[in-house]
Amino acid sequence: MSQVIGLINYGIAGNIHSIKKAIKEAGGVVKVISVKEELKSVDKIVLPGVGSFKDAMHELKSDDLFDELKKAIETKPTLGICLGMQILSTLGFEYGKTEGLNLIDAEVKPMLVDAKVPHMGFGNIQIVKSNKLLEGLENEEFYFMHSYEMVNYTDIATLSNYGGHQFVSAIHKNNLYGVQFHPEKSREAGIKLFKNFLEL
């Protein structure tokens, strides 16, 4: 039976169209979640993210589904994408200091690098600690589009390099997965990542 992936729709900043399309392409069934009652029927969760840490957390917290979502994320396999990964952290520093979901011991800070920011474009990943989500993707390129990075030392799955600066490009802790890059914008490699997620 096909897996039902709950794609969390929060506020105007959620860019869910392309993620939905990519999961479908990978063979999954997507249910866009806007109210808490819908969370029960999904097998896995994808947290999208476009926008700022502050706005994303504000939207999520003011949403009626927040408490249920937090509970669901603690048990169901969950994939955070870009900002969706960043908000799993303890604290974010975009437009002031904002508390995150505090599921990963990390802070989200501006990329300090001697190169153009935002970091935009395809880049490699270097596997630090392998996991099933990244299986077969060691040599692939993924699309990055971000100005902030997650600073974490305990749950690093991959690192990437931009302008001589190394940063965390994927994390993994128990049922939680996060990627700084956009698999939905990374050609076939990204579809493969979603297939891996469906198979978890």
Partner: peptide, 8 residues
Amino acid sequence: AQIFGNQA
């Protein structure tokens, strides 16, 4: 930029 992020 504030709502959708600079990158957008």
